[in-house]
Design a binder for these strands. Structure first.
Lengths: 227, 227
DNA sequence: ACCTGAACACCGTTCAAGT
DNA sequence: ACCTGAACACCGTTCAAGT
């Protein structure tokens, strides 16, 4: 049996949507031109008729995910005037985060893109709008964006996750060695385990920690706003 | 003339130092096995005798940069007990940042590494030590690390830098279009330009913004500490 | 013990050629 | 207008072979 010509003709739109699908299923390293063409029932070279190069695909994919975020946060409602800005911004950021959690590979791609996509610009524009509702000056809001960093759009990069990996991975010998070399890390770990002996761990850079950091910043910003 | 055998024999150490040199000069995309071998006057295949694979090199490079950070912050002095913790942590983080500014490609590599390098563990261990001096519980210090995120080691990733690129790049037509589509971004930009008409711009995610965000978080943490 | 040449599988991308 | 086959330059990596 021979391969059939694709029923639906290719298009930039179809290519980008397929790219998201491939990355969702196999991670970002699965996203090669040949694998992507496969997903579309075409040859790798055919893609170049619809996109300029792979970088163009990555730009488009970022814009697509950001659009998904915009659609989600677009359904949020609630007051944002005055002191209500904080709850509104918080809601918005946590909703954006939920979208990104469905595309775990996306933050890393976001970070490699230099040019801002239209959808990302829109996201930030509306975020600024909420702050303006709260009474922030543009200068204050500008600082706020920098202070939030990638948290503004729902993720935060950690260089080192204290309890990533199951706690069971660490045997007593390594634990002792670590206690000698890194007493504070060991103490912290012991404390976390002690506080929650039933926890499976491998679960601390998650929702709770994200919200702690977010609230710390939002509270600080509220203080700036209130003068 | 034919190539001479390398005078100095290869070693893991030499390979890693050469890798940092190559990345410093040509960016991370210049760091290929063949280019790295060139730098050492050897063949690409020879590297595999001293390192397991490219990933191993990247792990080693991260550890090397983190060691450079540790050496730098190791020379800092000053009190850290009680309320002095904040200044001590601030000093430490800004010193780490200076090292990373000399290796602009490094943060991106840091973020791709899952396993924590010994040098990074040491950095965090000592950072935790300063917080303990300040009176933080391990649980509080744990939250603090998450709140700081990558800022703890001196950098912060932005998804979109409001005024990256020279301001002169934006002509009036694009500015008008942007004002219609993204009123708040346009307003913010106009305000920044107005506040500092002489500024060349393209210079806002820098030191000042980093310190603003850092201080916001440190102030919030101090409030947590003081209970 | 340490280094290398030839080779492999896999990238992104070009280009002339097919329909 | 849209798609493809063959080919190119470049990756990381293996392995048998050199000294």
């Amino acid at each position: 049996m021979k391969a059939q010509a694709p029923r639906v003709p290719l298009s930039r739109e179809r290519v980008l949507r397929a790219a998201v699908r491939v990355a969702d299923e196999g991670g970002i390293e699965a996203l090669t031109m040949r694998r992507l063409a496969d997903e579309l029932g075409a040859e790798a070279m055919s893609l170049y008729y619809h996109v300029a190069k792979k970088d163009d695909i990555l730009d488009g994919v970022v814009d697509l995910i950001a659009s998904e975020i915009n659609e989600t946060v677009g359904q949020l409602a609630g007051p944002s005037a005055g002191a209500a800005w904080k709850a509104a911004v918080r809601r918005r950021i946590l909703a954006a985060r939920e979208v990104l959690l469905r595309h775990p590979w996306a933050p890393a791609v976001f970070e490699t893109r230099a040019a801002a996509s239209p959808a990302i610009l829109r996201y930030y524009d509306e975020l600024l709008g909420l702050m303006r509702d709260g009474g922030f000056s543009y200068d204050q809001a500008h600082h706020a964006l920098h202070a939030l960093g990638s948290r503004a759009i729902g993720f935060s990069q950690e260089l080192f996750t204290p309890t990533s990996g199951a706690a069971g991975d660490v045997d007593q010998a390594t634990m002792d060695m670590m206690a000698a070399q890194f007493p504070h890390l060991a103490g912290m770990l012991a404390d976390i385990v002690h506080d929650d002996p039933a926890s499976t761990l491998g679960w601390c850079d998650d929702q709770e920690e994200f919200e702690f950091g977010l609230d710390l910043i939002l509270d600080g910003l509220e203080r700036v706003r209130a003068g």
